[in-house]
Computed example of a mutant assay.
Amino acid sequence: MESVDKLKVTAAVALVAIGVAGFYIVPANQGALRVLAVIAGLLLAAATVWFSQPGRDFVDYARDSVKEAQKVVWPSRKETWQVTGIVFAFVGVLALFMWAVDSGLAWVFYDVILGRK
């Protein structure tokens, strides 16, 4: 990252900090003005980062991410219900298996080994 870009990112962080500080400096009864201070700080910081190389890289990354998300093939309603049914069936079978193992171990330890009835 170039020194100019570092300066821009530092300025953006400072603008956010100034916006947050403005929130606490403005009296509590001026709620809209307090929120406006934070929003102004965020918008100015975003505008500053927008013109830096890391900001442009982030925008390119975001655009590529949207393009990749558009390539996703979503399952149909029927496929979704089928997979959900399989998951519920597997959970039921696993619950029965775990109950059987727990009951079996309880019988072995309490009835066979310890002799309790």
Score class of each variant (00 low, 15 high):
50 W>R: 04
98 M>W: 06
62 A>M: 14
26 V>P: 00
17 A>C: 13
93 V>W: 09
82 Q>H: 00
22 G>Q: 03
53 Q>W: 05
58 F>D: 07
55 G>S: 05
3 S>E: 15
56 R>Q: 11
28 A>H: 07
33 L>P: 00
96 L>G: 11
112 V>H: 03
54 P>G: 11
107 W>G: 03
45 A>G: 06
20 V>I: 15
111 D>G: 01
12 A>I: 05
51 F>E: 07
29 N>M: 05
23 F>A: 04
53 Q>V: 08
64 D>W: 09
111 D>S: 11
43 L>F: 13
105 L>Y: 14
91 V>D: 01
94 L>H: 11
43 L>T: 06
28 A>D: 02
58 F>T: 08
58 F>G: 04
14 A>Y: 07
31 G>Y: 09
48 T>E: 08
81 W>E: 09
60 D>W: 08
22 G>K: 00
3 S>V: 15
9 V>P: 01
23 F>Q: 13
2 E>G: 09
54 P>E: 14
37 A>G: 01
96 L>H: 04
99 W>T: 07
109 F>N: 15
83 V>Y: 08
103 S>I: 07
15 L>Y: 06
7 L>I: 14
85 G>V: 01
3 S>H: 15
97 F>P: 01
98 M>P: 00
83 V>A: 10
56 R>I: 09
38 V>Y: 01
55 G>H: 01
87 V>E: 07
116 R>F: 13
25 I>L: 04
32 A>K: 14
24 Y>E: 10
6 K>L: 12
7 L>G: 11
84 T>R: 05
7 L>V: 08
5 D>G: 13
97 F>V: 14
14 A>C: 09
36 L>C: 06
116 R>C: 04
20 V>W: 01
39 I>P: 06
64 D>V: 10
107 W>E: 09
109 F>I: 15
24 Y>V: 04
116 R>W: 11
106 A>C: 08
94 L>K: 09
49 V>G: 02
69 A>C: 09
111 D>K: 12
44 L>Q: 03
114 L>R: 14
64 D>G: 10
28 A>Q: 08
93 V>R: 01
98 M>L: 14
114 L>V: 05
16 V>W: 03
80 T>E: 11
20 V>D: 08
8 K>T: 08
35 V>M: 07
73 V>K: 15
83 V>N: 06
105 L>D: 08
33 L>K: 10
106 A>N: 12
47 A>M: 03
93 V>M: 08
56 R>G: 04
35 V>C: 03
89 A>K: 08
9 V>G: 02
102 D>Q: 11
90 F>K: 11
1 M>D: 12
37 A>H: 02
5 D>F: 12
18 I>F: 03
25 I>K: 02
51 F>G: 06
1 M>G: 15
36 L>F: 14
50 W>S: 08
103 S>L: 10
24 Y>A: 08
4 V>W: 11
116 R>P: 00
20 V>M: 06
21 A>K: 03
74 W>L: 15
69 A>H: 07
108 V>I: 09
31 G>H: 09
30 Q>Y: 13
39 I>K: 11
